[in-house]
Amino acid sequence: MHDFANAFILLSNYVLIPSITYGSQLAIGALGITLVFSILRFANFAHGDTMAFGTMVAIFCTWGVQALGLSLGPLPVALITLPVAIAVTIALVLGIDKIIYQFYRNKKVEPIILVMASVGVMFMMNGIVRILIGTGDVSFADGARFIIRAREFREMTGLDEGLALRTTQVITVVVAGVVMAALFWFLQKTRTGKSMRAFSDNEDLALLSGIKPERVVQITWIIAATLATIAGVLYGLDKGFRPFTYFQLLLPMFAAAILGGIGQPIGAVVGGFVIAFSEVALTYAYRRVFEYLGPDGFEVEGLAQLIETEYKFAISFIILVIVLLVRPTGIFKGRVL
């Protein structure tokens, strides 16, 4: 029984909690991608770098607040700078839409041209973020680092394995829960949210019903920028900010959106958690778990790791390929791109 509890704590500590945290971050990111897709009808390659941009603004504000000698006690300062970062990112994204995307929308070009324009936007943002904040790691999570420390947990329970719960993990899950609940309430219950769904569902009929396309598009960008900034800040608080990792998040986020069914918000959430859980669970070394579960004195040769950590991106990719082969519409029957 003791061994079983130890194995469970070990799994919680290294698989369950990290994948719930990472899954929440991916889910919020993928929600932005899927919303832009369902309204503007293109895969937005700039989403990862929008996340990086928003996070950068939050970091600058955090530094500003810290320079004033203020703090939030146990919570990271980034939480109160979040609204400012969101506002700046919204302004940027709306500006980009006005200057770049609107033109193609009015011309009704092939969606792939919009994808390419978004690649151009991605690289410009990419350069601007690096110019402003550099390429190195930035850690900006202040406040209390842990809610439960491994040592305290061990003393409390008498188990050999400790459970560490970091503040940023709890913040991620709480914020993600609030954000998703608010988004789903907005989409399901408000007139504007419903008009967005209607526009996504049947653009021509939405126009006939008097729904204003430019307004829907603007609201979509506002939501997408908000989600991107929140996802970026949560990820950065949890794992540190580095511009290149945000570009690399693009693949798991796309995979999550497609796995869930593109254009389906609920799908993006489920997809985000599935991708995150697969990544963490498949790259975790299970040696000690097996040793706890096996008979006394049982030893496992090697790490008992299914896939090396270096290949974690391959996991999203393989899931993506399987979805494309088996069910291109995704779990929740989204649109086939």
Partner: peptide, 24 residues
Amino acid sequence: MVPQNNNVFPGMTVEENLQMGAFL
């Protein structure tokens, strides 16, 4: 106007379809 094809919002409930009709 009732178009010949694609004349409902398939991913929305019947009630929501009617609400969208009243958007204006």
